[in-house]
Amino acid sequence: MTGRVEDRREDWEGPVPVPTGATVPFWDGTLEGELRYQECDCGHRQLYPRAVCTACGAEDPLFEASEGVGTIYTYTVCHVPGEPGFGERTPYVVGAIDLAEGPRLLALLDADPDDLEIGAAVGVAFWQVSDEAAIPVFVPE
């Protein structure tokens, strides 16, 4: 387990991920509170999940569990909702998170915008938004 899974299915009105192809193992992991990334036999690590390794071209690289911690590469504070269901949420923070294992992931930052800074340590939690997926959300450590 790398993060707590909070059931938000009742009140989530935003877009929900649709697991398909190479992304299925990733989203399956989120339901168990596990943040997964692909690590190829060649050593390359990647997210978002793909059917091929972008370093060596191997097909269907396997998944590993992340520790679920990383740092903020950058972030923005959205004052205008960017998707349906986000109208009540503004201002909210979206960040690009560099996982300790390497891959970078875009995610909601569940934090006060005034308390954030680039380089700060964050850890993952999950909001389950459908029967098929929980979205990774990061909180300052």
Partner: peptide
């Protein structure tokens, strides 16, 4: 498939992406 990793964050695109 990548949109499942982006749109649920609510990021207001394009402005939010350029802002980052």
């Amino acid at each position: 498939p990548i949109d499942g990793f982006v749109r649920p964050t609510g990021l207001f695109r394009p402005p939010g992406a350029y802002a980052m």
